[in-house]
Amino acid sequence: MSQPHHTDPLLRNSRREAIIIGLTWLAATTYCCAYSYFFGYIREGQQLTKADLNMIFGVPSWVVWGYLVPWVVCAVFTFWFAGWYVVDDDLGYDHTAELESDIREGGVGG
C-alpha cells in the first residue's frame, strides 16, 4: 500500500519482546554449552576423573555453574520480563463466527 502503515501496537510490542527473548535464548545457549564444555566435558586434552570433581552441596561444580545457576538467573529474568516488561495488549475482536459464515457462503474450497 502506498499510504504509511499504522502498524498495530500489539505487533510492535510483540516484535520487540520476541527480539529480547531471542537474545536471552542465545545468551543462555552460548553460556551453558561453552561453560559445560570447557569445565565439565571429557575431551581431548582434558581427561577428567573423580579427582577433578569439585562438589558444591554434593553437586559437581560444573553442573552448578554450567546450568543450575543460569537456570535460576533465567527464572529471575523471566519474572522481571513477564511480570513488568511485557505490555498487556488488546488481542482484538474475535472473528470466529464471521469465518464460519464465510465458509458456508464460499462453498467447497472457499
Partner: peptide, 22 residues
Amino acid sequence: MVAPLTVLGVLGKRIGHLSRRT
C-alpha cells in the same frame, strides 16, 4: 530454563491476535 519465554512469549501474542483477527 528459557522455554517459558520462547514457547509462550515469542509467538504467543501474535498467534492469539492473528487467530482472532482471522
